[in-house]
Design a protein around this nucleic acid. Sequence first.
DNA 1: CAGTATCCCCTTAGATACTG
DNA 2: CAGTATCTAAGGGGATACTG
Lengths: 119, 119
Amino acid sequence: MEIEPKLCKVEDALGILVGKWKPIILLNLMKEGTQRFSELQRNLPGITQKMLTKQLRELEDEDIIKRVVYPQVPPKVEYSITEYGKTIEPILADMHEWGMKHTQHKQQKAQREVKSVSF
Amino acid sequence: MEIEPKLCKVEDALGILVGKWKPIILLNLMKEGTQRFSELQRNLPGITQKMLTKQLRELEDEDIIKRVVYPQVPPKVEYSITEYGKTIEPILADMHEWGMKHTQHKQQKAQREVKSVSF
DNA sequence: CAGTATCCCCTTAGATACTG
DNA sequence: CAGTATCTAAGGGGATACTG
């Protein structure tokens, strides 16, 4: 690999994904496609309006998602992944895969530790 | 791709990398190999002892790095990437690559915005 | 419906000083 | 050398109420 630590851009990519709700928001939009604000809120149990708004704005600022406002009453706002945003999908997929293996790894480690102290 | 959002393990992988110094610590250990506490501190300008200790402990807890204490005076402690820890290297590489493209993307976007308001 | 505006808590991270 | 311990500031995130 050989990434020169001084020139490291990992943080830049990380910054997009960091935020309690960002990965799950992205996965939702990627899987379900375009959604309204209220739909997203329904699909993200526990998120508050404030947090949903904030995370969406940040993702929008990075060009990962697109926000379309329909000038009508009551308001209608739709969110979707941009073409550019789709380029981050493989990274999410890899992280998901690694995360699954890591869950396993930790379970195995925990098992070993239990055995070594039991008698 | 199709990650089921409810079963998403992205957060688990993300948790390993999140922390102001973790990516750079990992890249240093991956590139330079085994290093002592003081070497790491030298290679990470600006980090405090407290932060370095904390991030190292967290990475150690996740089995990503290994800590070896030599019982001598003055103390000598060496840190290195575990075999298991190396499995996260491709993800760092991908994030670095994506991060470089993202930097470009943002610059191009900024250029377009400057042009559209100039005359 | 799709947000703002407040208030509040907790965690993260930095600065600094101390120790086996 | 390789850490702890303590204090503090800043920000992330939650609960709740209000609005065009």
